[in-house]
Every structure is written in C-alpha cells, then in structure tokens.
Amino acid sequence: MSISNDRKVDEQLVTASLAGDEAAFAQLVRRYQRRLTAFLTQLVGDLELARELTQEAFIRAWSALERYDPSYRFSTWLFRIGHNLGIDHLRRRRLQTVPLVRQDRDGDEVEVVLPEKGKDPFGHLKNAELAQALRTAIHDLRPEYKELVLLRHFGGLSYQDIADMKDMPLGTVKNKLFRAHSVLRTALADFL
C-alpha cells in the first residue's frame, strides 16, 4: 500500500472513530500495534514494558482523538504519544536506579543492558549471537541516530513522518540515517 493510500485509510478510520465507530479504532490498533511495540521495545529495552506502554499509548490516543490534528499523519501522532511515554519512563527509571556502565569502542562509558528472561527485545530471534550483536550495535548508536533508526526500521515511519515528528529538516533525517546505517553495517559486518 502506498504512503498516500495509507494516509487516506488512516484518515477514514479516524473520522469513523470520532463518529463513534468502535470497529474503526480497533482497525487502527491492528494496523499499528506491531510497529509501535517494536519501536517501544527498542526504546525502553524491555518487551513487557513496551507492551504496557503500547496499550497506554493507544488509550491516550483514543481519549484525545477529538484533539488530533489531521494535518499530521495518524501514525506520526501515535508514535509521538508512544515516544513521550517511553521517554518519561526512561527518565523516571534513571532517577530510581544507578546504571551499570562499561566502556565502548571509543573508550566512552555506556550503560550495560542486562535483559531479563522473557523481556528481551530480541528474545524471538533464534540466533542468540546475532541477537546480542544487534542489541549491542543498536545500543551503542549515538542517541540521535538510535532514535531515527528505531522510528524508521521498527516503527516503519517514512522519512517525512520522522522529519515531522522530530521537527527536523528532511535532509537532516536522511543524513543521520545514512550515518547510522554506516555505523550499523560496520558493527554487524560479521552477520551481513
């Protein structure tokens, strides 16, 4: 389905939802659940938590649907809600815990991610070595690269959607994603 078609379908579903059609919002949930959970799983590093945040994001979107600005795509709006929830959670967690740190390739200190069994964002991957490599490669990305990679590849947003969501020029999004991919290709060279 093309991006413009996709957008049209979303608009129709939002309009129907606002008119009280419960099935229309259910369809929006089915369209975006996987992508939103995938994005949030990478953002917060915990599948179970990402599922909770996904649910909360949909409920908030539904509660605030009357205030949705149709000049933005529904997906951009929904991901923004999810993103804000994820960031809020990370901020709260940072206040509550003392992170374990290790040194990355450049000698900088980075937080060690210790996924719990059953909560691992890559738990569904059969190749444990690949899962570990991916986890490390994504985690080691610079924060502004990581966020764009997550929105693009796990959230499935277009470059334009990302630019809208991040209030960033389209060229900057392209450039940052290009650099992020270069870093990922190098980090995951053994698996490519």
Partner: peptide, 26 residues
Amino acid sequence: ALVRLLDEAAPPEDIALQEQILLTLA
C-alpha cells in the same frame, strides 16, 4: 542484509495485546 536483519529483529504481531487493548478501550 542489514535491512533484512532489522526487519527480523522487530517482534511479531501480538494478537493477545491487541485484544487486551480493545478490551480496555471497551
């Protein structure tokens, strides 16, 4: 290969979660 890898890394569709969301919305 990288794009394929990133696609595979996304968790699969979660029907139970979708149902839970719809139930909560109801």
